[in-house]
Write a protein that binds this DNA or RNA. Structure first.
Lengths: 222, 222
DNA sequence: GATCGAAGAATCGTTGAACAATTCGACAAT
DNA sequence: ATTGTCGAATTGTTCAACGATTCTTCGATC
């Protein structure tokens, strides 16, 4: 007999609710650039397009709004989030906090290996000249860094931050030599991490984030 | 005519929507311990109690779920979040990341003054022997530290973390000499901050958070 | 011709009712 | 003690409606 309630690991075989699937679909369209910042999302239209009720769309909107992917304007509707002044700095402030903190704490061998895997993934993508894959690999790299901390909450925060950045920067950074610079930095950061030089890894990562922020600030209107 | 769209500072005089007010009311009850972890929140009951529609309650639930104050179990209902194994460590991991990062970045004179104000608030509460006020002051102190970074996103993350901790620890820590230790530490941290010794302030804060986590771990089951 | 305002259309916020699907509790059968 | 079944309760979702708010259009006015 199984112990009455093993407590935590209650694996729910739950089919994602309709509202969640709607949110997922919209998230996808947002990441893919099919819905550009500022675009209006009319409840009735989306409800009809996806074949669901307006109320369900509403619930999906609530979820996306909590992730800052869309903004609700009372009595006016929801719009794809737009980059306000200070948002770039804000996003990088969050990243500096959680990424640097995570890497300074080190992590299990498995988690470190995952970081290494992301670095390699980036190298392969570069070799294959696949810019999309390069961008994904970079996100995986930074996701893996946060994952070092083994914190559910930090993971979801990072997921949201990355989703927001995809929304804003999806095509803007298809500049080739952007990425080549990343690759070397990621390699160095990963090497320091593997060598247990956590302090130095943190400094390298911090430097990368600061430089990356400046790049984004110059690319987008200050 | 007003300038076509002054852009950001569009001050909405919006009356909070009904759904938001419901969420607010529930948040209040959660913080105040009227709704204990594990309690079931039946849609119909709450809808009737608050005199709103079931759909509206649903929207409020979605918001609270995104803040981890309640948990949705598909087809079963929403329950007040309970402390799972590792949650305490998780919460403190987030706090270490954002609080230490914020204090290491320093802040404007106004923001530093706000930290000082929170320290004083704590001292007054201690003098008045008001334990509730002491708890609030401590939360203000740590909120003020995060506010140093002037980041909307970090502020809301911190707000959510503190709300979650209030939910779990609302009465547990009414131990008098807990607080007196805090007061001295807060004072020392604030002094270091004011002196511009950011690195040291960060270390002190980190030490405090580590010790606080251990206390909570021993008080609550492991 | 530009400004203002008012009528009308579109959309949102919220409600209430409905119904299938799922879970829960109890009770009977093996 | 396990299994199965039935009924009650609750959730997930849809639909239709209506007041409130915003947007648009279109004249009327200066």
């Amino acid at each position: 007999m199984a112990p009455p309630q093993t407590g935590s690991a209650r694996v729910r075989i739950a089919v994602p609710s309709v509202a969640e699937r709607v949110a997922e679909e919209l998230r996808y369209q947002l990441a893919e650039g099919m819905l550009l910042p500022g675009a209006r999302l009319t409840e009735a239209t989306i409800a009809e397009d996806l074949g669901v009720s307006r109320n369900t769309v509403r619930e999906a909107f609530a979820e996306l709004a909590s992730e800052r992917l869309v903004v609700r304007q009372p009595n006016r509707g929801v719009f794809v989030a737009t980059l306000e002044a200070g948002d770039i700095h804000d996003l990088y402030t969050v990243r500096r906090a959680i990424e640097v903190s995570s890497i300074r704490g080190g992590g299990s061998a498995e988690r470190v290996a995952a970081v290494r895997a992301a670095v390699d993934e980036g190298k392969r993508a570069a070799a294959a000249d696949d810019n999309d894959a390069l961008g994904s690999a970079n996100q995986h790299f930074h996701g893996a860094i946060v994952a070092l901390a083994e914190s559910k909450r930090l993971d979801t925060i990072m997921r949201h931050v990355l989703a927001e950045m995809r929304l804003y920067f999806h095509k803007a950074t298809s500049d080739a030599h952007f990425y080549s610079a990343w690759l070397e930095e990621n390699e160095a950061i990963c090497a320091a991490l593997e060598a247990g030089e956590l302090e130095r890894a943190g400094e390298l990562l911090l430097g990368y984030l600061n430089r990356s922020e400046e790049q984004q600030l110059t690319v987008h209107g200050e």
